[in-house]
Structures are given as structure tokens and as C-alpha cells.
Amino acid sequence: MKRALNEEIEIGISGIRKLTETLKNHYGFDIGVYSSTSLKRRVVKVMDLNNLKNLDALIQLLETSESFFPLFQKQLTVEGTEFFRDPALWRYLRDEIAPVLDRNHMKIKIWIPGCSTGEEVVSTAITLKNAGIYDKSVILATDLNKEIIKQSREVIYSNNKLEISENNYKRFLEDESADLSGYLIKKDKGFQFKDDLYSNIIYDVFTGTENLKIKGINVVLCRNYFIYFTTQYQEKLFGIFTANLSTNGYFAIGNKENITFCKDADKYALVNDNEKVYKKISA
């Protein structure tokens, strides 16, 4: 039943339209905000994961089983890639951003809007520990629903992620002998991180409309999140992030993402060109 990842995307425009209608009518969930190719690939993936032979079967399941919907959203969400992706970003966070925040704030508030499988969250916590400011920090990790948040905290990472991640970690610390073993718990089929790493992480649902539990965010880590949305929705999200970010706060996107077309972009200065880190300079 499982398709090869490079097999044809069989869903046409009319199929997507029908799915869009169903999700809007039954759940008020708008998939029109998603970038089209990724959306189609994820929908095919959801069909495979649930042994559904065609799109109609998926639509029928969504129409008849409300309990399936949170799982659908989870399966639609793209998993994180690796820990410490782009090591230079984490070094910048530790060496340039952390000292500034440490000097200026009693409490440091970092928001990761799409925490997915938690790689960025864990990388952030370890980096803050490295910088010696984790104890005065809080990381707000949000995603579409409780199912995804639960996964973000409880997922068992596969062992093949460890080698890539440790190589990143070595580059981050510029130390060939560095590894993550001090943070890890080995499991039967993979690994997790120790509980104390999660002590200052708060999880919450964020779908684009909620008020945040935490006000005056100092850093938004939003890397490789915008790529899954249309430019119209990117602009809307960017407006929300900007409204929640305090002046002099930092905003990071993926190195090939772009926010310069957004109206709010002129409130920012680019402070790290390679890693696409912006600083909010006006309210």
C-alpha cells in the first residue's frame, strides 16, 4: 500500500478543492493557506499512513470521524529535520543574542511557533544551557493542536537522526569530541532527551488566532516554517509574530526564506545575513 516517496502526486486541483471544503465546513480548518506542492505530498502521506486508497476515502473519514481530525493535522505537519540544523545559527544565538538578552532582561522569552517534532525546541534549550541562561529563560513551543504538542514532547527520535545531529553539534561547538550523550536517554528504538531539559518549556496550541500565554517575546525562532505557507499567509503570520515580539527582539527564519515582501519587514534590521536573523527596531 505504501507509495514510494517519489511516486506521482495523484491529487488534482478538484480533489484538493473538495478536501478544502470538507475541512472548512466540518472543522473550520483552512488548508488554503498551505503551499500547494507540500500540501499535496502531505495529503498523500496521510492517505498512506491510514491505508486509505484514495482521496474520497480520506474525505469520508474526515466527515464521519471527528476523532480522526487531530491525527490528520499531526500527520499533515512536516517533521523536523535534525537537531542543530545550521550550526552557525545556534552559535549566533549563544554568542551574540544570549549575552544581550542576559544583560537586558530578568526573564528571557523565546517562541517557537511550529514546534512539530521538537528538534528546534531541544536545540534551543541546549544552546541556552550552553550560554548559561536557561534558568532565566522560558521557551514557548506551539503548534496546531494538542496531539502535535504531545508528540513534540514525547516522540522517540530514530537513531539515524543522532549522527547527523551530533555532527551539527560538533560544528556548533567547534569541537570534534563533542557529543549529545549527556543530554540523552537511550530507548529501545531510538532516543529521547532527559526531563530536566524540558523544565523551562511551555507548550500551547497556536493556530494563528490565539492570544499567547506569554507576553513580550524576545526571540521568535521560525525557521523553515514559512515555506509551508502561501505568501499571503506568510505575511499574515509575520504580522502576528511582529505584534508579539518586543522591540529589540530577534526574529530568525530559514536561510532561504524571505520576508522582505511583507509590510512589517521595515520594522526590522537584518543583523545576520547568512542565518537570516532580524532585529525588531521599531514598534
Binding site: 516517496l5 517519489n6 503551499s35 500547494s36 506542492t37 507540500s38 505530498r41 512536516v78 517533521e79 529535520t81 540544523r85 523553515n224 515555506i227 509551508y228 530559514g254 536561510n255 532561504k256 526564506e257
Partner: peptide, 29 residues
């Protein structure tokens, strides 16, 4: 195609990037 991203060519004559899992052990695939 940039490092560590898949590069899609979409209907509107625009690129889209993705960090989905590697295909054929490759990203970009």
C-alpha cells in the same frame, strides 16, 4: 537547488522549498 532543501517548481511559475524527509537519500532530491 539549495543545500538541505527540496526544490519544487510550482504551477504559478514559482519555486517552493521543503525540508521534508530525504528522497533517494537525497535532499535536494
Amino acid at each position: 537547488a539549495p543545500a538541505n532543501y527540496h526544490l519544487y517548481v510550482e504551477l504559478a511559475g514559482k519555486f517552493a522549498l521543503s525540508t521534508e524527509e530525504p528522497v533517494n537519500h537525497s535532499r535536494p532530491a
